[in-house]
């Protein structure tokens, strides 16, 4: 009896393993076939020695060399990463007050606010961007308001700038940050903040020394998601930024569906994927070292 119990805890028994395979198998096999295999075959495509999408052959690193050797592509890559960092930072600054207040709210007060927060996340991206086009276009809301107030004499071009592209992306991805911060702050005992206040720590000191360190995992998780979504965006840059704002995602889209150069598009995709994985690994490491610091 004891042996059986121990066996069950030490490693999964044979019938349990069968049940496990039946339960988790279909999902795992599906993703293996329709996510992992396509990504691996993309590696092969990116190494073809031609610019043709169909029937490529041979092995070559030329697409990677072309990307990394061309100042234009490298500058777009750098610009994309900068946009990713700016949008993440903006979302932390704007998302923290909202996430914090939601976490400290009564459930009934939270009730009608949560749908507002998650609307941009659940609503189709194109509908959201279409709304921004109405707001920002020459005859749109912002221009009408500025004209009405007499601040400008003629409509100004608000679209096609990197600032508006980042603003729209920040609005679209902000919910991830708010939810992430909300869930982590909800687990911080309010008594800790009261204790800090009793020790005559001001609001800012309490925020900086008590709340922020404890909320850091949520802030990092939210930033990771926002960064990934921003650096891989292509619909928003294309519709809001036009040809004036180039991002890595829009170039991949262009190469894949317009130029039809899949090997080059594939190489760019894998560079993007590598950046994303490095970012995730870096953030994981950062949050782990920060944790052990707090613990010691």
């Amino acid at each position: 009896m004891a042996a059986r119990v121990q066996g069950a805890t030490d490693r999964t028994s044979r019938p349990a393993r069968r049940t496990l395979a039946l339960l988790a198998g279909p999902a795992a096999v599906f993703l293996l076939l329709f996510m992992l295999v396509p990504l691996l075959s993309l590696v092969r495509t990116s190494l073809y020695d031609s610019d043709k999408s169909f029937g490529g052959a041979g092995w070559s690193l030329r697409h990677y060399v072309r990307f990394l050797g061309d100042g234009f592509y490298v500058s777009v890559l750098g610009q994309t990463l900068v946009y990713g960092l700016i949008v993440s930072l903006f979302c932390v600054l704007v998302g923290f007050p909202l996430g914090y207040s939601l976490a400290r709210m009564s459930p009934s007060a939270r009730r009608w606010r949560i749908p507002m927060v998650i609307l941009p996340l659940t609503l189709s991206l194109v509908v959201n961007v279409f709304g921004w086009l109405i707001i920002l276009s020459r005859g749109g809301l912002v221009n009408k308001a500025l004209l009405g107030l007499g601040l400008i004499d003629a409509p100004v071009q608000l679209l096609f700038s990197s600032f508006t592209v980042m603003l729209v992306m920040a609005q679209t991805f902000l919910p991830f940050m708010v939810l992430s911060i909300m869930s982590v702050v909800a687990q911080i005992d309010p008594a800790l903040e009261q204790a800090a206040a009793n020790l005559r720590a001001g609001r800012w000191t309490t925020l900086r020394r008590v709340v922020l360190p404890l909320a850091l995992p949520g802030i990092l998780a939210g930033s990771t998601l926002v960064f990934i979504l921003t650096v891989s965006a292509f619909i928003t840059p294309r519709l809001i930024g036009g040809t004036r704002v180039q991002m890595l995602g829009s170039m991949i889209y262009e190469q894949t569906l317009v130029v039809l150069n899949w090997p080059f598009g594939g190489a760019m995709s894998l560079i993007l994927l590598a950046i994303v994985f490095m970012f995730v690994a870096g953030v994981n490491r950062l949050s782990r070292t920060r944790f052990s610091e707090t613990r010691n």
Binding site: T12, L31, F34, I252, T256, S269
Partner: peptide
């Protein structure tokens, strides 16, 4: 509770962090 549980969970949640544009071109050519 089994070995590789964390890996399985990360794997089935991973489509959330694989950039859609990469998933799109990968699936397209596959």
């Amino acid at each position: 509770r089994f070995r590789g549980r964390g890996a399985l969970q990360a794997f089935v949640l991973s489509p959330m962090i694989v950039p859609a544009v990469v998933l799109g071109i990968g699936l397209l050519q596959f």
